[in-house]
Design a protein around this nucleic acid. Structure first.
Lengths: 204, 204
DNA sequence: CAGGCTCTCTACCAGATGGTCAGGATCAGG
DNA sequence: CCTGATCCTGACCATCTGGTAGAGAGCCTG
């Protein structure tokens, strides 16, 4: 029996992302995952050797998407505008857009960023270059006197967790029945930007 | 065979808190939990009927501790000072102190606050009265013109998630090897207070 | 001492879990 | 038409899971 595809891998990745992001890694069974796809568990194992490697593959794809989106918006912003603040704002916007369009991705991030979680290490190795790059940028800005001088690493981690926190909050709101209204999201984004701006103390 | 105690229940609760907070609910097995205590799993089930109820008990105790600490600091602050802002600040301080002293508690909160997690409902029922109370207070403040008029529920949820986010961040820092230095924590707390102050727009 | 209560244990179970193995179906190329 | 590669599956397995049944040990009370 050979179905239409070639895309089974992708389908499995999608389903795995959804399940890992909502039920968690331990809360996901290969049998359930397969059943949801009308497939047998052995098929999953054929494509991804083990459950652990399936998680790795999911993390790889997601961080890939994320960094690609960030790269894209960065290069675009660099082409159009000269202001550093515009670039920061663009990045925040893209993170929020992702959070709205693909909420499961936030769930996965939450699941996999727990210290001690399988895949936490992998996430870190993927995010490390981004962090390093941002840190270098901030240190340059500080050296040039365009940014208030503080601990770049700390501020960066703080900004990261705040952005992710706010984005996650959207999910909480949705779960609390606040509904798909866009207003609170926009409001929160504005507040966050204000906060970041004062933290960074950028001369716009 | 009867050992020295009567405190087995408490020991199990402690261990369960630690395991649920780090490995998660699904990632915790009663056998491992028992083995860590030099005990058989059936003893755990004797005290807490089922794994699910064990989680409930852990959540109950933790939210109990938390609300007790908040109540305490609130009543104390009310006795000593007259300023609303002092009370807010005192509450933030107590949350940070808890986060530093009992980091596992944050882990549990993180685990159990995931939408769809078992015990999420229970957490909500425990936190609801606190939230309602805070909302009433904020609405009073707004009515009296001492606070900028916005969506109280939204602002509250935002403040909650920010506080918890920052407190959790301490754990992330610790995991990243930033060490038990107090400086970043104090710095973050100061930033957070500044942020809350501007959000609330309290006339101190 | 008898009998009950509290606490912990051994023994056991049915179901689910991740994973292995061998084989069946389909297709491309020689 | 044969062969090998790709993709998928049924049968099977060892292990672990939460949970049950029952017994025995220490303790208190009548």
């Amino acid at each position: 029996m050979r179905e239409a595809r070639g895309n089974t891998r992708e389908l499995v990745l999608d389903a795995a992302l959804a399940s890992f992001g909502t039920a968690g890694y331990d809360g996901t069974s290969l049998d359930d995952l397969a059943a949801g796809l009308g497939i047998r568990k052995q098929t999953i194992l054929y494509h991804f050797v083990s459950k652990r490697r399936l998680l790795d593959a999911v993390v790889d794809r997601c961080t890939g998407e994320l960094t690609a989106a960030l790269e894209h918006v960065l290069s675009e912003a660099r082409a159009v505008s000269t202001s550093d603040w515009d670039r920061v704002e663009a990045m925040v916007r893209v993170v929020f857009r992702i959070a709205l369009e693909k909420p499961v991705l936030l769930g996965l991030l939450r699941e996999v960023s727990r210290p001690g979680s399988p895949g936490a290490a992998r996430l870190r190795t993927h995010l490390e270059p981004l962090m390093a790059r941002a840190r270098r940028w901030m240190e340059d800005e500080m050296a040039a006197g365009r940014m208030r001088r503080t601990d770049a690493q700390l501020l960066l981690l703080s900004a990261y967790s705040t952005v992710v926190g706010v984005a996650t909050e959207i999910e909480v709101l949705r779960a609390a029945g606040v509904g798909p209204t866009l207003r609170p999201v926009v409001q929160r984004r504005a507040e966050l930007l204000r906060f970041l701006r004062s933290s960074l103390d950028l001369s716009a």
